[in-house]
């Protein structure tokens, strides 16, 4: 058995943690994050804290991670905050919201703005301590078998699109469909659904969506940079000596930054394979559709913060930070993206 006495002077004490995740074990990107975390922690602590990673369904199902860490089944979990929208309406702000911040901005808000403090405050009543746990970077709008040339094409469009974006899509006249992951590919291939969002080229190529759908649409209005999370049971964390607590924090931070690098590197390669080898057609969602989505997103968020004071508080901080970041990025990143594509004389 494990000992949970908070004896911080006892440096020889061993801790064995279980880490449950929402992904299949070793799933590219998402699943490699917790694996790396376990490796870092084991090595940095000299084996005093060992973390064993469990894939989705091994101990609890993918969406049981929150409750499992909360009730002490496992000391730790790796998942995405937007999955807890039904429990904590404010949760999506800590992963990704439509037309929200990208990875770089979100990381800045979390670690150098009020983000992390708010996140901790929101999770505190559940006995959970959150850490940023990686980011997929800007995703793709999804795989479509019907062309989207105007708002009319959204009417009755059947798409698997979860979260707040699903609410927006529904208000725009689309039909959000809830599907088990296993049925996704066939449903898209046969036409049971017209479209689905997934992650980005890295994961999408592995899933083989290019064999089931004609068009790969861009501009991930729905998930501009999804942050993942490590959640730690508060009692378990406090039972660790101070140095091990720090190791947990730093290892999570390392994984957080590493996953984004991994996605950037692998997405680049995978996109080339999709386009050059499999002849996938990349398409851009039309501006009037995006404008409509944007307006509806404002409505959805307005409804959300009206009904939930916590969301109102979190969104206030989020928005204030976002507006500053956008102004700066307009003259820096965005200006440079334009600059570097200029043709040389």
């Amino acid at each position: 058995g494990e000992k949970n006495t908070a004896d911080t002077t006892q440096k020889t004490q061993q801790f064995k943690w279980k880490l449950v995740t929402s992904w299949p074990k070793n799933f590219p990107g998402l699943g490699l994050g917790p694996e790396k975390f376990a490796k870092y922690v084991n090595e940095m602590s000299g084996g005093r804290l060992t973390v064993k990673v469990y894939g989705a369904g091994e101990i609890v199902p993918a969406l049981g991670v929150f409750e499992a860490v909360r009730n002490g089944t496992a000391q730790m979990g790796h998942s995405g905050a937007y999955y807890w929208k039904g429990k904590i309406p404010a949760a999506p702000f800590f992963s990704s919201i439509p037309f929200g911040m990208n990875a770089q901005e979100l990381n800045a808000w979390i670690h150098h703005g009020e983000g992390l403090a708010l996140w901790r405050e929101v999770y505190k009543p559940f006995g959970l301590v959150p850490f940023a746990g990686g980011n997929t970077g800007t995703q793709m709008a999804g795989w479509f078998n019907k062309e989207v040339n105007s708002l009319a094409d959204i009417q009755g469009l059947k798409m698997r699109i979860p979260g707040l974006a699903g609410d927006v899509f529904q208000r725009a006249g689309g039909v959000p469909v809830n599907l088990p992951g296993g049925e996704l590919f066939t449903a898209l291939q046969t036409g049971a659904i017209d479209a689905t969002e997934w992650v980005g080229p890295y994961n999408d190529l592995a899933f083989g969506f290019h064999k089931a759908a004609k068009y790969y649409y861009t501009s991930a209005w729905h998930e501009p940079g999804s942050m993942l999370e490590f959640i730690v049971n508060e009692d378990a964390l406090l039972a660790l000596p101070a140095d091990l607590q720090k190791i947990v924090e730093v290892a999570a931070r390392a994984v957080n930054s590493d996953m984004l690098s991994e996605y950037t590197a692998e997405n680049n390669k995978a996109l080339q394979t999709l386009v050059n080898k499999h002849g996938v057609e990349i398409k851009q969602l039309p501006d009037d559709v995006l404008r409509q989505y944007k307006q509806l997103t404002d409505e959805v968020i307005a409804d959300l913060i009206q009904n939930d004071p916590v969301s109102k508080k979190v969104y206030g901080s989020y928005l204030a930070f976002y507006e500053q970041a956008r102004k700066y990025h307009e003259v820096s990143e965005q200006a440079y993206y334009r600059t570097r594509e200029l043709k040389a004389n």
Partner: peptide
């Protein structure tokens, strides 16, 4: 490890 029993309702 009895903490695994906590997984029961979730499963």
């Amino acid at each position: 490890d009895t903490s695994l029993f906590n997984a029961l309702p979730i499963r």
